[in-house]
Design a protein around this nucleic acid. Structure first.
Lengths: 210, 210
DNA sequence: TTCTTTTTGAGAGTTACTGTCATTTGACGC
DNA sequence: GCGTCAAATGACAGTAACTCTCAAAAAGAA
């Protein structure tokens, strides 16, 4: 789920404490590139910011930037929330209604990100509205998340992992989340985003204008 | 709705008979570029086909190609179905349940395209599965279609044109369509696509594993 | 230290796309 | 048919995101 923050810890931390100097340096570089990117984009806008500038600001070569992130879009969009969300989903009671599980996970994730990295969240949502290529990629990333969440739900229901009905279900949920984010962004990010997500999920719960 | 064909007529034709030589030539060029593109991509694949090759095959300059299509992706994806679908939606009886209206429109559109331009449909769906950038753009285009369809539905229900609930509704419908297409493509495009679309829409009608 | 492996930077090359400008070509009044 | 004007085209130069290759540098193991 790309729209949600980048580095912060979710409900539960996930860290292998022992980490060699090499690994630590790599993580540092990764973060430096992302921070530089966020700063430059906040100052100049997305398109006006070149990878060369990003590399210079992060004090690495352009080659290195592309080694860490396959595309410029990915510098902004990559996050590590998907596996966490899947884990949390698997940890939910098996007899909980799937929509309820997803509601808890999504509202929880949104709340957590808003608390821990509000600036990133705001910038990302703004970019999602303004930059077409980023919006497209974000939407696609959410579709991937949908697929990821479909597995546990299918397992739980005793269906095939790629069951069509289940995939439609999770896709609808992610689409609802997307609309909540867009709505939030379009109104200047003033509303209570968690409440908006709840509202959009209510629509799927039978509140739609059928 | 990008996934669906390019040039063919839908339920009702839309043509202003009088058209100067200039206009006719432009349309010809447009079609030539698209045909050349489809042919080259079918032969070599999407990434291996350069705009230069396309221009040469269509016997125009690269500049002209970009004048007709803003991006290479658009050559493959652009279609003219959205306005038609919106018109058909507006023509449906106002007291028809929205999901029923959309079901008729989407299955009708899919059926029409499968009948008139099966090859394009197949190629597009294949590319949607294989080329990430195209898939992202297609998903995004469907989100745009969702927004377009939301307006008439909101009108009908006496709601604001950007009503959140309505947007979630149409977004869910388009997400369902997307899943139907993906499912169809993943199984080698052997199943009855119209039936698949019906099935996915059934999920929204209360058949979801809530 | 020395040897090995991983990481990095430098540079050259490709391609999608943008902007400009001169040339061509259809439209239209005569 | 003819000349004029606007639109369409092609040629060209330029930018920036990526890719590939290779040699230098830095980390880990012995």
């Amino acid at each position: 789920m790309t729209t949600m923050a980048a580095t912060a810890p979710l409900p539960f931390e996930q860290h292998q404490p022992p980490m060699g100097l090499r690994e630590r340096k790599k993580l540092k570089t990764r973060i430096a590139i992302r921070k530089a990117t966020y700063r430059l984009i906040a100052e100049q806008g997305y398109e006006a910011t070149t990878v060369e500038q990003i590399a210079a600001a992060a004090e690495v070569s352009p080659s290195t930037v592309f080694r860490y992130f396959p595309t410029k879009e990915d510098i902004v969009l990559t996050d590590e929330y998907d596996p966490v969300m899947e884990a949390v989903l698997r940890a939910r009671p098996a007899d909980e209604p799937p929509l309820e599980s997803l509601r808890i996970i999504l509202t929880g994730a949104v709340a957590s990100i808003l608390e821990h990295e509000p600036e990133e969240m705001h910038l990302r949502t703004r970019l999602m509205l303004e930059v077409p290529s980023l919006r497209a990629r974000m939407t696609e990333t959410m579709a991937e998340t949908s697929q990821l969440l479909a597995r546990p739900i299918a397992d739980r229901a005793g269906r095939e992992p790629d069951d069509l009905e289940v995939r439609v279900f999770t896709a609808a949920v992610m689409a609802a989340l997307r609309e909540a984010l867009i709505h939030w962004g379009e109104r200047g990010q003033q509303d209570d985003l968690v409440a908006l997500v709840d509202r959009t999920l209510d629509v799927l719960e039978g509140g739609l204008p059928l």
